[in-house]
């Protein structure tokens, strides 16, 4: 049997409906993978979710892959499942690193994408356009070292432990608190005057 014939049913229909937007279709270890163009990714995912006969109603996972080859595009990976048809389909969206890493958010299709997209944004720096609350989720808010799961991010981080300690000690006190904590203190009129003044001047500072 050729690799083509083991693709999950429906991939041919996807190709017929979107033509040039479907860049590649492969099978790896029995999983069907379809690579689609970034600009039409949201359209393809919405079509897969809503078209009768496709019904990929369950978003298993969103993640991204940064390859060891620095020339190769970063890929955003959507793991879809049709609960009724019991088939899985993986959609990959390559993002060229020479351009801004942006793709449309699928939060409007699956609410489960909320935290998954935030995680990909946090760890890979991919911006999901249209996400209502795109901010870091696992790393802290003022983390400025970069995006840890990118291959150009060294395992031990960009700064030595001594450098991190030095920066933490030299930072303004308000840099140690998240915006939520600062706003809670502000709401209860407990923010010291010097902190208020520095915040008003935009000098919150960062802890790396």
């Amino acid at each position: 049997m050729t690799a083509e014939s083991m693709l999950v049913p429906g991939v041919e229909a996807l190709r017929a409906a979107f033509g040039g937007a479907v860049l590649r279709q492969t099978v790896s270890c029995g999983d069907s993978i379809v690579t689609v163009d970034r600009d039409r990714a949201h359209e393809v995912l919405a079509w897969l979710k809503e078209t009768p006969g496709q019904e990929f109603d369950y978003l298993t996972d969103i993640t991204a892959v940064d390859y060891r080859d620095p020339e190769r595009a970063l890929e955003v990976v959507y793991q879809l499942r049709s609960l009724g048809r019991r088939v899985d389909l993986r959609i990959k969206v390559p993002l060229d690193k020479s351009q801004p890493l942006e793709v449309d958010s699928v939060w409007d299709l699956w609410k489960g994408a909320d935290w998954l997209e935030r995680e990909v944004y946090d760890l890979f720096g991919v911006v999901f356009k249209g996400h209502p609350d795109l901010r870091r989720i696992l790393m802290w808010e003022t983390y400025a070292e970069g995006h840890p799961l990118r291959k150009d991010f060294p395992l031990r981080g960009n700064f030595s432990r001594a450098e991190q300690t030095r920066q933490a000690l030299a930072a303004n006190p308000e840099a140690h608190y998240s915006m939520e904590e600062l706003s809670i203190a502000d709401a209860f009129d407990e923010l010291p005057d010097d902190m208020k003044r520095r915040l008003a001047q935009g000098e919150r500072g960062e802890i790396r």
């Binding site: 915006m179 600062l182 706003s183 502000d186 709401a187 208020k196």
Partner: peptide, 9 residues
């Protein structure tokens, strides 16, 4: 210049 993430009381 006030932290604006959460609504104030």
């Amino acid at each position: 210049g006030r932290p604006a993430r959460l609504p104030l009381r």
